[in-house]
Nucleic acid binder design. Sequence first.
DNA 1: CGCGAGCTTGACGTTGTTCAACTAGAGTGG
DNA 2: CCACTCTAGTTGAACAACGTCAAGCTCGCG
Lengths: 233, 233
Amino acid sequence: MQETKKESWFNCDVCIFKQTICHFITDEEFESLFEATQQLKFKRNEYIMKQGAKSDYIVYLSKGRVKMNSETDSGKNIILTITNAPILLGGAIMLNDSINIFSIIAIEDCDVCLINIDILKSFIIKNGELSLKLLEFLSGMFKDSIYNFISLAHKQVNGRIADILIYLSKTIYHSNNFTLTITRKEIAEFAGCSQENVIHTLTRFHKDEIIRSEGKSIEILDMDKLIKISKIG
Amino acid sequence: MQETKKESWFNCDVCIFKQTICHFITDEEFESLFEATQQLKFKRNEYIMKQGAKSDYIVYLSKGRVKMNSETDSGKNIILTITNAPILLGGAIMLNDSINIFSIIAIEDCDVCLINIDILKSFIIKNGELSLKLLEFLSGMFKDSIYNFISLAHKQVNGRIADILIYLSKTIYHSNNFTLTITRKEIAEFAGCSQENVIHTLTRFHKDEIIRSEGKSIEILDMDKLIKISKIG
DNA sequence: CGCGAGCTTGACGTTGTTCAACTAGAGTGG
DNA sequence: CCACTCTAGTTGAACAACGTCAAGCTCGCG
């Protein structure tokens, strides 16, 4: 986790955040926002935003994949959702008070911009189009969490694992044949079940020739069947 | 579900939405927004906003209590959260596209204003402070859902029912001694378990003198114990 | 080589669902 | 006034789903 400011090794010109959000602000405004922005690199398992802590920034993830993690006092974890770049992730600002109710943790090497909320807020007040765009952006991050919530509540493990495999393939790795960057334990935390249950389910899917599962490598052989399992629950 | 426009039987002067959000817009702007606002009454079990449907309004709940409900193809329901007036509830606008991913259903008689999104959007663009306030308001509605999600994923039925009882007492009915306006089936849908399991758990709590449960009437006798059960899971 | 982290397997007990039968109260119609 | 029906709530027993535990495996790394 190293910081290199002013001498940006990120190319802001290709940044979605700059292109869409900052499209509405002047060059000088962008400069002052940029001055107050930290550009950081995170490695796997490093905290980008910590549950329980105050944060005065929102996170723009320009490269890599992260998990939103909630941990109990007893040390149990659940993963609200997994997401990948490019995306804007707001912790505190979206939740009305300044304390994060979940953590954002890198599951791969990530490039991140931490954008100061106060300065951004001052622009929002001056610029309505910006705020509308921001509203759209930030709200998007909840959608996946809610979907996962619904999946978790409605379905049992078979269906939930099917959902997760479909989600990983379509939204996270963009392929039917992908190499996991998360552990079975993390899949279990995502599905809200035990690690052993994940493994049992995966081997069952493997035997039924719905997927090919070999260590970190997973290939979806029969997407239709997987969707059917997801629908049944 | 009857409509009475222009001759408002709601008193806008005591409306939180008007006081906070509309504080930032002019009287004329408020008038034009008011013209495009439907004031409606809903009875128990009526849909205020329907899952799968498009909606071009956000919901201001000025009286009553509602549930956010998600239903599967197979007819199973889960309740994302229950909330009460006064509160602003956005469906589509918060979720980046125009299709509602859950329903909002009255669980008691409700007074509701349906506020046109397009007109509101035009004010947001013109007025940054309004949009900031709106962002805060709308984001609040997700907080409870996320908390419930975490409870559901982390805990087993004992802890989830404890969570729900605490939530109902503190946030919904504002008393340790309240009369339920939802059925056991709805508690089950809230807790993500079967109706029988809810009843078994409630009678267990009753026998252990943690609560007094008599039909719709519930009294929390030992809040400390309930909190302990919630923490253990 | 030895160690540890991640993964896998099967046995077993707990938790929770399903099912079926029963109760209580509210509304309806003769 | 009494049947009747409908809905909500309740109970217990059988069964399935799931978590826990314990043991062993594999692979990368010092």
